[in-house]
Design a protein around this nucleic acid. Structure first.
Lengths: 156, 156
DNA sequence: GCATATGGTTTTATGATGCAACCACACAAG
DNA sequence: CTTGTGTGGTTGCATCATAAAACCATATGC
């Protein structure tokens, strides 16, 4: 976490996302936010983390456009932290992390909750990766390609 | 990263996975490993990280069962670090991170690569979450349920 | 005005990080 | 068998983020 090495300018999208949410608390804050938590105290209470760290994380998440501060909601003059669309877009990452734990954790019996389809109450499937035409893809069916040049002629 | 707060015993699977791969370098190491890197020097070279940190991360990943040390491969008496099935299971997490960057990054033009279907060379679809019966699920279509008690009678 | 709850910031100790230097071993040459 | 080089690390040490607790500010109730 010494942030000496910033991945801000890195060309790898994974590094770039880690730059924003690659620390321990951020994802947990987002998890709680997805569950509806909004207030500083709610986060602090639920996560049991130091308030200064929470404060710093919230600020960073706001700077990264993952959370936004809303002026109020219940009348009190305090702030609220609500997820932006970018923040809600983190949901699949959390699902992937969850499923990885569920599948590979050494003590799966300690995991308290399962993610289920609300309608049927049955566990959701593993995340699936599909091609444009719908074929199911395994990691080996994929590869990385250089990104096509951004469509502006003035560059070269 | 100060690991004061360990999530080792936490009941949340997200926290549990962060415990194993929730630091900056681990996921990047795994990314490279998925690309075929195996040797200490290869990782060090590619990622440009301090060797002691790399050493510590590799050791931690081995302890977590994500990497395994293989005695040799090209004849030299040195070690190699290869992904276990648990390690390869991290692929969807990386894909989720990548897609999040691709969709929401403020400067997407800086992202150098895209993940494509090897057969057609076309970008893969966004990861999909589906119910057991195949229905496509949005976050709102899901919920958390307490895990059913582990099937052993002797407990209570 | 005084107490209390909420929402933070400041202070301070700790310890992980990152860099560089050092060490150990393998392998090759002389 | 000694020297040299490359690989694969470990060992200091300075620095900076973290975490815990104390402190501060504003709002609300009495």
């Amino acid at each position: 976490m010494v942030k000496r090495t910033s991945f801000e300018g890195d060309a790898c999208p994974i590094a770039r996302s880690l730059e924003a949410i690659g620390d321990w608390w951020s994802l947990l804050i987002i998890r709680e936010a997805l569950f509806g938590l909004r207030r500083f105290g709610e986060f602090q209470n639920k996560l049991g983390m130091a308030k200064n760290i929470l404060s710093a994380r919230l600020r960073a998440l706001v700077e990264h456009g993952i959370l936004a501060t809303a002026p109020a909601s219940d009348g009190s003059a305090y702030q609220e932290y609500v997820l932006t669309p970018k923040g809600r877009g983190i949901f699949p990452i959390l699902v992937a992390l969850r499923q990885w734990s569920e599948e590979f954790d050494d003590r799966p019996e300690e995991i308290a909750t399962i993610l289920v389809d609300r309608e049927k109450g049955r566990p959701v499937r593993k995340l699936e990766m599909r091609a444009e035409d719908g074929r199911l893809l395994s990691p080996a069916d994929t590869m990385l390609k250089p990104r096509p040049a951004p469509r502006r002629r003035s560059t070269g």
